[in-house]
Amino acid sequence: MSGTSMIARRRSRTLATVSTLFLITWLIVAAFPFLWTVWGSFKVESDFFSRESWLNALFGVYTEMQTGAPFTGDGYYGAWITRDFWRAVVNTAIVTLCVTVISLTIGTLGGYALARSGHRYAFWILIAALVFRAMPHITLVSGYLLPFFELNIWGHLATSIVVLVAINQPFTLWMLHSFFLSIPKDLDESAMVDGCTRFQAFRWVVIPVMWPGVITTGLFSFLLAYNDFAVTAMLLSQDNQTMVPKISSFLGSIQEQGNVMFAVAAVVSATAPLFLLVMFFQRQIVSGLTAGAVKG
């Protein structure tokens, strides 16, 4: 009796060790690239891309030699000021903010209707949204370009915003729909009996209860707009570029000039907001990812 439990305990201890080791490995794999790049962004190129030893990147031998200090903000200065990265940051802020707000506004209305209508067409709209959700964005972009050139609306921030809102809708509708389903129907019905129109019930009774769902969905709309490359790279003119296409355009021009550190600095700058986002909204992100899973 005690013998078997000893074996069992030993085996479970081995298992625990293996699983801990595995987890540590994963955490390194997941996080190390970011830490390394953040660290390296304060070095000069010959350290970060060192021909001699990777230790140079750690201690900044050439950085010290060239700038007199082990850390340098040259990359950031070059990207933000010399290459006008700040402008892309402003554009990104405008685009993501507008996309999030508009997506949520029309998405909550639509998601609510889909969750409360028992009619068949609601079901078919959801299925159509699922198919739309699967469309690779670049294929849609290839549909936009020519008409947008002809209509003379290519290149503007507003155009990209509208397009991103639309591309975002299928996902937003699905997610909000499943959040609305979790709110009892009795709530809006009592409001309507109490004297509200459908819209007032939605606005005064349902939405106040829905905030967690709305915030979660908003995070994902934000991420979609923020992370997009296909739409913003193809639909924005040079002046209106947001961060991601701007970074990609750095690669073309800067690498040759030997200023790849501009791109590294820009990448780190663009990653920072995402870090903060996960830090503050981890729970909402997790609940959003699972909301779709449980209901959808």
Binding site: P184, D186, L187, E189, S190, A191, V205, P208, V209
Partner: peptide
């Protein structure tokens, strides 16, 4: 309502 439908 059966489940009261109070506004939380």
């Amino acid at each position: 309502f059966q489940s009261y439908g109070l506004y939380p």
